[in-house]
Design a protein around this nucleic acid. Structure first.
Lengths: 265, 265
DNA sequence: GGGCGTTGTTTACGCCGTAAACGGCGGGCT
DNA sequence: AGCCCGCCGTTTACGGCGTAAACAACGCCC
């Protein structure tokens, strides 16, 4: 249940300093500005959840009336699009020095590893925003969340095709990879949300009722302690490595002219 | 782009007869009733999208004022929960005779195959409802969408542990399997939604602008025709078979007492 | 100093979810 | 038969929502 106790050294789980940590020298501007609004919206969602975000409340969180936001954002839907774009774009910002996501890399496997952990870090840093990243309609029909920007997809395909993948194999890899990321991370952040929402309502022992109701489900009752464990980091790593192995097989088949199932025209 | 042309024989893609097809003998009751409300909500979402569903509009779709619904449904949130439960529970209904999802099966691989296609059939039958299935908070923290009901999870774990899986291996399989289903199907229904929303706004050639904007992204521009193809059915099948192979490996490791990475306590 | 663009506020409208009071109707009891 | 009561859908009302439109305050350049 407690995430940190199960794996105290998850490298994608970074401490989030409240307030977003505006760096030195960037004084808080008194004016509003689109950037400031989007960051405030992200902070608000992180703190109060997506459902609680309204224009009026976001305005008052910025010390301003709701209508003031419309000078910088066309409407609520566009605000949410901006939130998603802002969060995803942190992928391109170099970290505090020890981890560059996609800037330079050695080989496509290293690239995919860095990218996966970069996206996972984002998801864990903003668990309440990630479902938005997953579900907002993308720019083009073939853009697959959570790899939402053309820039990332271009980088993905360019890296793989520049490293021995045929175009077909690169596209197949892009689809398998995005499916994996979306499924795993969406479930991981959902479980985080479910946990905190359980802590909100401390009616005695929260899951005492659920556990006693399990007597009709013998397999569930027996494995319940296993199910309650959080192994997200290890499972992510193992599934990612399995996927990379599979993609490596696809890559060689493509080079040898054999016919991977999904690769034929 | 057109789904049926890419794979004209997708077995999970069934024709949906408008009106839900109330069978013979079940006369449409004049009273309201929770079942009728939930089915009307499903039909409404399928037709107009989730965002368009309001209590007032659902009421008038049933020829009734909004407040009448509250006799049978505590509120909008519970209505959505009921929609998800209703849709998911169609898994247990035998089909028109040629396909029983989970009733009987021969071995865990057959079971997982049937279950996966059953869930996929639901997703494709109600693409606008499926994101709700994916994102609504589950009953217990360790219930992973889209396998949302305790009944299904019990069936899953019972089948696998009754077929050579240790408890740990069965739980690991449950997690890998649900991640796969969620990721693949959510992306598939999202793409369906994106396509139809594109057809709504026929401003000349819908993606002419997008395609010309791609000149800054050479890899994207080159692979765009590949990206636009829909290979969902084949990719689903291949990824599913790969997953089953991987789970088979896990099963044997567990039986031999070796140590699968995620399986150690 | 006077006009003007920029920024935030005020007011207003229609829609939302839903609480509460109300009416109308049909079936069982006396 | 007459009555009453429980069920069911309507009416009314309230606060909050997104947002259009008119309005006020303030700084800047001529």
């Amino acid at each position: 249940m407690d995430r940190t106790s199960d794996d105290p050294h998850d490298p994608d789980l970074v401490a989030v300093t409240e307030g977003g940590g505006t760096a030195l020298g960037t004084a808080r501007p008194s004016g509003l500005g689109r950037e400031r609004i989007l960051q405030a919206a992200i902070d608000f969602i992180d703190e109060h959840g997506l459902a609680a975000l309204t224009m009026r409340r976001l305005g008052s969180a910025l010390g301003v009336e709701a209508m003031a936001l419309y000078r910088y954002v066309p409407g609520r839907e566009d605000l949410l699009d901006g939130v998603v774009e802002t969060v995803v774009d942190t992928l391109f910002e170099a970290d505090d020095g020890d981890d560059i996501y996609i800037g330079d890399h050695s080989g496509w496997q290293d690239y995919l590893m860095r990218l996966a952990h970069g996206v996972r870090r984002i998801a864990l840093a903003h668990p309440a925003v990630f479902p938005l990243v997953a579900s907002r309609p993308p720019a083009a029909p073939w853009v697959r969340p959570p790899l939402r920007s053309l820039r990332i997809v271009e980088s993905f395909l360019g890296t793989l095709t520049g490293d021995g993948f045929s175009d077909q194999a690169a596209v197949a890899a892009y689809r398998a990879y995005s499916s994996f990321l979306l499924g795993h991370l969406l479930l991981e952040v959902t479980q985080i949300g479910a946990q905190v929402s359980l802590l909100d309502q401390p009616e005695g022992d929260p899951d005492a009722q659920a556990r006693t109701d399990l007597d009709q489900f013998p397999a569930l009752e027996r494995t319940e302690p296993l199910l309650a464990q959080d192994k997200s980091a290890a499972e992510f790593e193992e599934a990612l490595e399995n996927l990379l192995d599979r993609l490596d097989r696809v890559r060689h088949e493509a080079r040898n002219g054999e016919n991977g199932d999904v690769l034929d025209l």
